[in-house]
């Protein structure tokens, strides 16, 4: 299970009344094994949404819950992939991935098995003994994704995970994440400001307004993807060429541009 629910969620940084109102009346339900991306103008509070599910921030109003339990603190059932990777630089790739399993008191033989499997899946086996800084940005983020996936979490939270990568690496990672997510589905909340990325990866895309952020619109991408059989195309550029893809992308672009325009007015 792993149903994320935002019920009338609001977030104010600082004192009520004079503080900064980041989020207002957020209502969103993410079903079990559903992949939802949130896009929005910068500063709209999309990352705050993710941080509340992770347990790094508390909602000022309303309730954020997973499987009906309100979230109080961070935990390994909600694994986070950070934009800046956030690996432990003093631990090898293997030990970075191992740490969460040790905390869960998984037996050592099972740990070795699970780590080998995830290293293999993420093409990291030959880098197991490397330190993070010896790897490229894309490889480091692969380690971070492996560190999250190995915990077998109900919920996977990804905060602009490819934002710090160069364009080529980014495409490769997006394709890999699609493969991983289809093979091994999880409930995923994915934050991004890249529209194509959201449409390519997610089952549904939620568009947010400028601050105080609200959910403006939720688009059902999965039904279009299945109807048009996007997954038959292996490469991201082939999918991005499809008329149905372009249509959705343009729709989201327009919606975000409206927000941007309103921000400047």
């Amino acid at each position: 299970m792993g149903v994320i629910r935002f019920q009338n969620v609001g977030k104010i940084f600082g004192p009520r009344g004079s503080g900064f109102e980041a989020l207002k009346d957020i209502n969103l339900e993410i079903g079990d094994k559903e992949f939802v991306a949130i896009v929005g103008p910068s500063g709209c509070g999309k990352t705050t949404c993710l941080r509340m599910v992770a347990g790094f921030e508390n909602a000022t109003d309303g309730v954020v819950s997973v499987d009906g339990t309100p979230i109080k603190r961070p935990g390994p059932d909600r694994a986070v992939v950070f934009q800046q990777f956030a690996l432990f630089p003093w631990k090898s790739v293997y030990d970075n991935i191992d740490l969460g399993l040790r905390n869960l008191n998984v037996s050592s033989s099972e740990r070795a098995q699970r780590i080998d499997a995830i290293l293999n899946l993420m093409n990291l086996t030959q880098y197991a003994k490397h330190f993070p800084h010896q790897l490229s940005g894309g490889m480091q983020q692969r380690v971070a994704i492996a560190r999250a996936y190995v915990l077998d979490p109900d919920v996977l939270l990804m905060d602009e995970p490819f934002g710090a990568l160069d364009a080529q690496t980014r495409v490769v990672m997006q394709e890999e994440l699609v493969r991983l997510a289809r093979k091994n589905p999880r409930t995923v909340l994915f934050i991004t400001h890249a529209v194509e990325e959201a449409v390519y990866l997610a089952d549904r895309v939620a568009i947010m307004t400028r601050a105080p952020g609200r959910i403006k619109e939720v688009l059902d991408v999965a039904s279009v993807r299945n109807a048009e059989d996007w997954d038959s195309h292996e490469k991201i550029e082939d999918v991005m060429d499809l008329e149905s893809f372009v249509h959705l992308r343009t729709h989201i672009w327009r919606s975000l541009r409206e927000e941007k325009a309103a921000q400047h007015a």
Partner: peptide, 26 residues
């Protein structure tokens, strides 16, 4: 780094291990 600490919280570190494997090496 703040995200490194948050990663440690996310992984559910017991206190002693948090000190010896995150705070001290960090």
């Amino acid at each position: 780094d703040r995200p490194v600490l948050e990663a440690a919280y996310m992984l559910g570190m017991p206190k002693f291990r948090f000190v010896t494997e995150v705070l001290v090496p960090g």
